[in-house]
Design a protein around this nucleic acid. Structure first.
Lengths: 148, 148
DNA sequence: CAGTATCCCTCAAGATACTG
DNA sequence: CAGTATCTTGAGGGATACTG
């Protein structure tokens, strides 16, 4: 029986985290959510992934308490996927991945999207002090700019 | 043609990172490497994964410059997998995943493995305010204790 | 628009046997 | 011990057609 083994009962927190979000798409969905993406088609267009897989991942993320469905912020009667507190607390993970990628996966002057401070509008340096909650930067203080 | 699309050309650093290490096992191998695991059989026993998959992941991590092969530290003529500088700089990612998991994926008093400071031997608090220089905590300053 | 339903293919993953 | 080889299964993923 080749099916995947669940890591949810592992004593290591890293293992359980990986079991929740350690797949190709979930973290990218979460990244987009931090960037303000809220609707199905927007996720789909942004990520270029198959609709059935997107549907599956969104459902699992909602089940995991990382995203939740809200009624749309604008007039429409549609639903929107937004990060819960639990989901927002994944910000350090996304930032850490971003910083590692910036440093090791790009050529010297290759352009990439950057984190910007919402207040000052200035880019957050790659190795900026960033910690979990006692830290400097929170999900509400920074956002991602699409291009460089 | 259903094959996976590579994210290595994406402009977003998070996407490229996910493409390198965003799968079920790679991060757990890296976690073990931070914990001092170096040899094939030790990884295999620790992770309980199939040997062919482990072999594949180790090779890919070496290709990605995250691990490198060294001659064994003890007398034997075997090889050992150790983290490169690039690999060690993934420490903040692992820590972030750990902290998120500790906070959101465990019951109130459920035991889990913890990070300990190498010098003092004391556990690093989940939400510790961390260093002054902006770094989170370096790979040489902390290690993981297997049990709680 | 926001999904669900199919179809189909590839590959991750497990199990196990084998080799230097 | 450190892998490689082989086999099997099911999950991941892409494409597209369909529905409320």
């Amino acid at each position: 029986m080749p099916s995947r083994k669940s890591l949810q009962a592992e004593p290591c927190p890293v293992a359980r985290s990986v079991d929740s979000i350690g797949d190709r798409w979930s973290l990218l969905i979460i990244r987009d959510a931090f960037d303000g993406v809220r609707r199905f088609s927007d996720f789909q267009r942004s990520l270029g992934m198959a609709r059935n897989i997107l549907s599956d991942r969104l459902r699992k993320l909602v089940e995991a308490g990382i995203l939740e469905l809200q009624t749309a912020s604008d007039g429409t009667s549609y639903q929107e996927y937004v990060l819960t507190r639990k989901g927002q607390s994944l910000f350090p993970v996304v930032v850490a991945l971003r910083q590692w990628g910036e440093k090791h996966l790009f050529a010297k002057d290759e352009p990439h999207s950057v984190l910007v401070d919402k207040r000052s509008g200035r880019p957050v340096p790659v190795m900026s002090p960033q910690a979990s909650d006692g830290g400097v930067l929170s999900a509400t203080e920074a956002e991602v700019r699409k291009v460089d």
